[in-house]
Design a protein around this nucleic acid. Structure first.
Lengths: 222, 222
DNA sequence: TAGATTGTTAATCGATTAACAATC
DNA sequence: TAGATTGTTAATCGATTAACAATC
């Protein structure tokens, strides 16, 4: 983890995938893996894997390959998956409730520590082991529990204000499911993952829409 | 929509965002927009916007800019957002149920037409306007309703088999929330959007983990 | 040692940005 | 017409792939 002056976004986005595949490998009882073999499995080039890893250091052994367990641990360290960053979930609607119980947060580097909503109907209800708290209690909760991640499952209209507030309360990363682009908000040193489900779905539609076209165009071209 | 020999993935992923922002613009009552103005709002370069659009044709007017409504419609057409592609949701667990009611599918080019699960406990229960159907009924349902999109909210272990089956039943696009990489499955002309929530969360952790490091390194360097 | 596979440098490819002529 | 802004070409930048010397 020495040379990472500035690791590109593309590399970072691939790390979790390496981490996952190495986990699978281990489950299968493989202890040694070469870049070529891993590349084949993951459908990428061996070059890319070696380049990516060398952003962080040399984890392999020439002539041998990589120790799967060691490499996975190293990548885990780089990602910070055992840091257990405290996270709050804001918005206990359908999606919020699902994210609350569906994900194994510990596996991905965090720990859900509170769920909030400003809807009085929802406040006090239980979701898994959590009781939905009112937004009015957010400030004192944050001083007490020091969450660094906020999972936003709120309407677009509420997002800018809530973001601003959370940033003020020490939140340093947003996992954003609202239809608002947090990337646009002007907070320094904030990490954002905008998960725009609608955008993803539209991109999928483009694919269908376009393979269709290709098909009919194809028949014309013949 | 004439010159799209082969539009790059990066361009396609940006189209839904343009579409969204143009929608906002219209809501605000703006009818005219220049690439420069749109670029500023979206925090991208005007060059990129013009380049992207010119993959599909010239939608603007020199010296004037773009008609917002027209441009939005054109992009909508390219994406296929008014195609109402029929979609089935497989897996009525927490996430599946949330996706079932949380999203305005029509807005994104599809129409949910059925929900399936192989868990007997869930079969017959209602989610919004849908009744969960048993997997055994999938085949006849598909011949009757011809869904082209499958939304997968199933465990990783079940994914390969279910994918294979669905592809055989005419599914041409997978919106994949399972922890399995459908990209690896060997089906020709299939569109896939792998939404790996865990990967996204890990990438976020990397950000925190790393800005932290930068901070402490910074103080040492001084 | 010979064979294998890394780490790393160089070559290629693609995507983004800049520039500007065309034109409304 | 003059000013503005597109469509498009050229320049730059970054990311991916290929190649190979280092070395286990």
């Amino acid at each position: 983890m020495s040379k990472n002056d500035k690791v590109s976004k593309s590399v970072i986005r691939r790390l979790p995938r390496y981490y996952r595949f190495l986990g699978e490998l281990l489950k299968e009882g493989k202890s040694k893996i070469s870049s070529r073999e891993l590349a084949e499995r993951m459908n990428v080039t061996a070059s890319q894997i070696r380049q990516d890893l060398n952003c962080f250091g040399g984890f392999g052994q020439q002539g041998y390959g990589y120790n799967a367990a060691e490499l996975r641990d190293e990548i885990g360290e780089i990602l910070g998956v055992n840091r257990n960053y405290p996270a709050v979930l804001i918005g206990a609607g359908n999606l919020g409730r699902a994210l609350c119980v569906h994900l194994d947060y510990e596996k991905y580097g965090c720990r859900l520590c509170g769920v909030f909503d400003n809807n009085e109907q929802l406040v006090g209800t239980r979701i898994g082991s959590f009781e939905v708290q009112p937004m009015t209690g957010l400030e004192s909760f944050c001083s007490a529990n020091k969450p660094v991640i906020a999972i936003l499952c709120i309407p677009k209209s509420a997002a800018p204000e809530v973001c601003e507030k959370l940033a003020g309360l020490g939140i340093r990363a947003f996992w954003n499911f609202s239809h608002y682009d947090i990337s646009l908000v002007n907070i320094p040193d904030i990490n954002v993952e905008n998960v725009h489900l609608g955008d993803s779905l539209m991109a999928l539609c483009y694919g269908i829409n376009n393979s269709e076209k290709k098909y009919s165009e194809g028949s014309e071209e013949q």
